[in-house]
Amino acid sequence: MSMALEEHDLAADEAGAQSPRTTARAGASSPSTKAARHALITRILAKERIRSQAQLRDVLASHGVSTTQATLSRDLVELRATKIRSAGGRQEYAIPETSVPGQAPTGAPVRDDGTLADHTTARLTRWCADLLVTVEWAGGQVVLRTLPGAAELLASAVDDAMMPGILGCIAGDNTVLVITRSEEISAEVSGHLLALADSRPRL
């Protein structure tokens, strides 16, 4: 009887010693570093319409990531996340791309071929539909008016699309100045971006 109890206790001790390692392995797939958490937040904000930090915490939790309100607030500041007002009038978080205005993203070749449609990305289409208010052009310049605080987001989308004939963008708060190679290109770019803005669903 005593030997049976000793064997039972030994088995229990071994199981208890192994359980922390098992738990650690189960949670290994969740982002455990700040860089990994930032990458996940960036992906979430790019795909979903997040309107509050509480909503973002819930989405992170669904990915197995638990974070405090203070930590999440710091993450959003470090990622330069800002709230913009969508075309529907609601505010949602967005993160501008890290590319330098007027330059292609690191490692990507500068392209100046194809049509504007060939270079139109899903991101550019979304931001034009959600943020673009008016478009005017004169000579080799196109002026884009956006919702308040949204100019940097739209400018980064235009830059990343690397549309032919566009030399670069300068963004303010609600105004983007797009520099093109010619008056003809300015007219073409203006019409194209307006068409993307008109693609937003009508209420």
Score class of each variant (00 low, 15 high):
residue 156 S to H: 11
residue 120 T to Y: 04
residue 27 G to K: 07
residue 49 R to S: 14
residue 44 I to C: 05
residue 48 E to W: 02
residue 60 L to S: 06
residue 89 G to M: 12
residue 104 A to E: 06
residue 169 C to I: 00
residue 133 V to W: 02
residue 176 V to Y: 08
residue 50 I to N: 06
residue 18 Q to L: 15
residue 170 I to D: 13
residue 80 R to W: 00
residue 98 T to F: 02
residue 160 D to P: 00
residue 30 S to L: 12
residue 178 V to Y: 02
residue 86 S to L: 13
residue 176 V to N: 10
residue 150 A to M: 04
residue 170 I to W: 02
residue 83 K to N: 03
residue 145 R to D: 06
residue 200 R to E: 07
residue 47 K to W: 06
residue 170 I to C: 06
residue 16 G to Y: 08
residue 92 E to Y: 15
residue 200 R to D: 09
residue 47 K to D: 11
residue 167 L to P: 00
residue 63 H to P: 02
residue 57 R to F: 00
residue 120 T to F: 02
residue 84 I to M: 09
residue 164 P to E: 02
residue 155 A to G: 01
residue 194 L to G: 01
residue 162 M to C: 03
residue 5 L to H: 10
residue 125 T to P: 03
residue 64 G to D: 03
residue 56 L to A: 10
residue 139 G to I: 01
residue 95 I to C: 05
residue 155 A to Y: 00
residue 103 Q to F: 13
residue 143 V to L: 09
residue 21 R to A: 14
residue 51 R to S: 15
residue 100 V to P: 01
residue 71 T to E: 07
residue 28 A to Q: 08
residue 14 E to R: 12
residue 70 A to F: 05
residue 108 A to T: 06
residue 162 M to R: 13
residue 131 L to A: 04
residue 187 A to D: 04
residue 140 G to T: 08
residue 151 A to S: 08
residue 132 L to E: 10
residue 75 D to I: 01
residue 173 D to W: 04
residue 117 A to Y: 04
residue 36 A to Q: 15
residue 203 L to H: 13
residue 116 L to Y: 09
residue 196 L to T: 05
residue 63 H to S: 11
